[in-house]
Simulated scan of single mutants.
Amino acid sequence: MAAPLLDRQILERLERLTIRWQQSFRGLVGGHNISRYAGPGQEFLDHRNFHQGDDLRAVNWRAFMRLEKLFLKMFQVEPRTPIRLLLDSSSSMTASPEPGAGSKFDYARKLAAALTYVGLVRHDSILLQPFHEKLDDSHLASGGRHRFGPVNDFLSALEPGGRTSYFEMVRQFISAYQKPGLLILVSDFLDDGEVLKPLQYLADFGHELMLVQVWTDSDRSPNLKGDVTLTDAESGGSLEISLDEATCQAYTEEFDRYAGAIENLALRSGGRYAGFSTSVPLEEAIFSALNQAGADLQRAPRSA
């Protein structure tokens, strides 16, 4: 068994959260996660008064014996909306803030582990789908929190590598997963080719996007001066360039514009966006930054 990606303290805090989605997907149970109905279900929510035409099988007969009034038991429908988590495993994710420190990929897979654990606690099923220029082998996480061990092992065994191609990846994804659902995408969104158009295709095909962008501080604000040689982590190509303070400032501004364009795409299509540096402590990213950015990872409702 692989070493735990998340410590016990974080897992205990994650048990109080739930993943929510905004859309109601045609032909699927779910929508805003909580859907109430009368009859057998997974989780008791509440009672309501009986009305003519209601199903007598849902009546709380014990309450009737005590109160001589008819009440219906309301349950939470088990959501069947597909939840899929796309995890960027390309070579660009191998960048780290400093030698010996964890990489963007290490950070991203811990975020993926946290989000998957939240889903398992709420008995959701989440498909973990690593990708670079194509879709890699996936893992379906389901069955409750006790099935988190295989998730931990799957994510721990992943090795980042290869080039990024959002166009090719999205083409394969739309072909493989035609039923729309909640799509969580954890990536640095760095690609020599187009990124925004493929993401828009995902939204146009009915998927609700939750885009989580991670970067190192040097990705956004390079701490370099003078004549330097930059090497592309994916293609191996190099570029000689002269950097000064003004050039670095212009680069940071362009990076922020790009991140803003990704955020605007997510919000415009009815989705959500969260972006932060790997210098942000993992717990802060999970319990604060995601919520503040509108990712809507919220406290779970208490059971009755």
Rank of each mutant, 00 (worst) to 15 (best):
V212P: 01
L290P: 00
V121E: 10
S218Y: 04
I241L: 15
G236D: 07
H207N: 14
D136S: 15
M65F: 11
P281F: 15
G294A: 06
S91K: 12
D227L: 14
F131S: 10
L14M: 04
G149L: 14
Q23Y: 05
G102C: 07
E234F: 07
V186T: 01
I174F: 01
D124E: 13
R257Q: 15
N33D: 14
I262Y: 07
D204K: 13
Y177E: 12
F154M: 09
L239M: 06
T216G: 14
W21L: 07
A259N: 10
S35E: 15
R109P: 11
R66C: 03
P222A: 12
T247F: 12
P180D: 11
S277A: 06
Y251D: 02
P160M: 06
S187I: 00
G149E: 13
Q298Y: 06
V151A: 04
L111I: 15
S156P: 08
F287K: 07
G143H: 10
D217V: 09
Q76C: 09
A176K: 14
W61Q: 02
A285G: 07
T231W: 03
Q52G: 02
Q292T: 12
A274C: 02
A304T: 04
S221W: 07
N264A: 14
A112H: 07
N264I: 02
K69H: 10
Q42P: 03
R48P: 00
Q9D: 15
F71C: 01
L56A: 08
L230N: 08
L5P: 13
Q298W: 09
S89P: 03
H132R: 11
G270A: 08
N49S: 12
V77P: 04
A304P: 03
F287P: 04
F75Y: 04
A101S: 15
A38N: 00
R109G: 09
N264V: 02
L111F: 08
Y107M: 06
L211V: 01
D192S: 09
A246W: 08
L11P: 03
L67R: 07
I174C: 09
I126R: 05
R16V: 12
L72R: 00
A176Q: 15
L87V: 02
E194F: 03
L199D: 06
A203K: 05
L128Y: 10
A58C: 00
L85W: 10
A285L: 02
F205A: 10
T18A: 13
A203H: 03
